[in-house]
Design a protein around this nucleic acid. Structure first.
Lengths: 268, 268
DNA sequence: AAATCGAAGTTGTATGGCCAACACCTAGTT
DNA sequence: AACTAGGTGTTGGCCATACAACTTCGATTT
């Protein structure tokens, strides 16, 4: 049983209190000293907890005055961004997942780079359709390196949450990098998402790594627009969001129509 | 002259060293103790500096082993995400900005909510076309509350960087929340971005606030696809990225074609 | 009435210390 | 050769303290 550290448990208690409007919105949190007494910990531990809330944009933090609760507080944790199934459940929808195609292939150039593996390595490519309460929502093309693929491969094709299974298998995700842009549906997208070829889709390319920085997963997800948006909070305290400039044609399938890119599952 | 705290200056030095590949990629940083000696500060100060780099995804951080430098290190700071002009210059493009229309209007419902102002308040709406080295790249519809608008209003219509001007005026941005999704170009978008009506565009809605949590700016930016992407890093240490579910029609202009939404500048 | 000053309260920066948890390597054992 | 145990190095968690920088508000002065 791994014990959660104190500052994280305190942060969760405070987060819950904020969400239940115990202080605000616009209200002020108790001072660090007061909270330290209440929880019987040192001020440093309280500060660690409050730092978490600050990074998520739940409270302000400035010298001289007590912290102010912000409204529109995003109410998700790392796990919910990591797992489609968990996210779906948190918004009251029923997540569905179905593997359309799956198999081992030699890693292509992009997979070698993204997963940081050699040119003789092979990857498990999985094409999955994700549903929200029955309706197609997202098509997911994921590549796993050898070690992770071995865990994922035997899963039933209708396994809803791969992430939760991997956790039980001892695979822990520590970091993720997401690149969000826009592409047009290729024939495969159109077929499974039940839209027209060349319809615009919201694309999220994602690489997740373990605590040591070793890549665990490389995925390209294509969302039907109109029902999903991505929300990012950044601040002086941490700047996780950046713009990226792309040379025309490089890395983007936009405008090419047929989708030459990066995909898994194009093979028979 | 406000002095930057020590841990920030150390973080910048380390960041620069990492970017110049002094350690890696894949290399290991010196231990906290070693760095503390080198910089003649305590271990706690070094830890604060390293925390910044960790949040930005430049290094790993796990118990028992020294920090590992990650590749694909994003190389931007808060200011560059905040300012189109600064970002453009950082990628070697020449930023252009032109105010197409500007004026004071009574705040509509969305502006009142986003800027947290009363229903009798007025806002300065600015419609701006942003260019990258001459080519249209983004159309920006921004609303400023009274106090900020008064500073922005007298600016020349071809002022390239509003953000940099606001800083000199004593307006400091501390937090920003971005919502990214997909919309179709309306007539106005098409005219200025030189695309067709109903062409898909990448939309970023953004609200920025000052250190006290007071909204400074509410903006809806529409990017021509194909040349830009948004990159987000999140981790167990901080989770700034979340998915958002939208009820069909609510908040999204997608599919409606004409663009009923939220915009400034629809008036003559 | 308005401006100035100062005290109290609060968060930010920095120091120093202690132990636990974990990774990594080595020497010894099996 | 493979496994085991232990020692060393390193980061995570937590504590206690001190002062600096800043906000806020009330009292005093102008």
């Amino acid at each position: 049983m791994t014990q959660e550290p104190r500052y994280r448990r305190i942060a969760e208690e405070l987060r819950k209190a904020i969400i239940e409007h115990a202080y605000g919105p616009g209200g002020r949190l108790p001072s660090e000293g007061t909270l330290a007494e209440q929880y019987a910990v040192s001020r440093g531990t309280i500060r660690q907890a409050l730092m978490l809330l600050r990074h998520d944009g739940l409270v302000t933090s400035r010298r001289g005055t007590r912290r102010v609760v912000l409204d529109d507080a995003p109410v998700q944790d790392f796990a919910q961004m990591q797992s489609f199934a968990r996210w779906a459940r948190s918004i009251g929808e029923v997540p569905g997942g179905l593997v359309i195609r799956q198999g081992w292939y030699p890693a292509d150039a992009e997979e070698q780079r993204s997963l940081r593996i050699g040119d003789d390595a092979r990857v498990l490519r999985v094409l999955r359709l994700r549903r929200l309460s029955g309706r197609p929502a997202m098509l997911e093309r994921t590549s796993y390196p050898e070690a992770v693929g071995a865990i994922v491969e035997p899963l039933r094709t209708d396994t809803v949450s791969v992430t939760e299974f991997l956790e039980r298998g001892g695979v822990y995700v520590a970091d993720a990098e997401h690149t969000i842009d826009l592409v047009r549906a290729d024939a495969e997208d159109a077929e499974h998402l039940e839209c027209e070829v060349a319809d615009p889709l919201l694309r999220e390319r994602r690489r997740t790594t373990d605590p040591a920085g070793v890549p665990l997963e490389w995925s390209e997800d294509r969302y039907l627009p109109g029902s999903i948006a991505f929300v990012v909070h950044n601040s002086l305290a941490s700047t996780p969001l950046t713009r990226q400039h792309m040379m025309p044609g490089a890395g983007s399938d936009f405008g090419s129509g047929s989708g030459s890119g990066s995909g898994s599952g194009s093979e028979s």
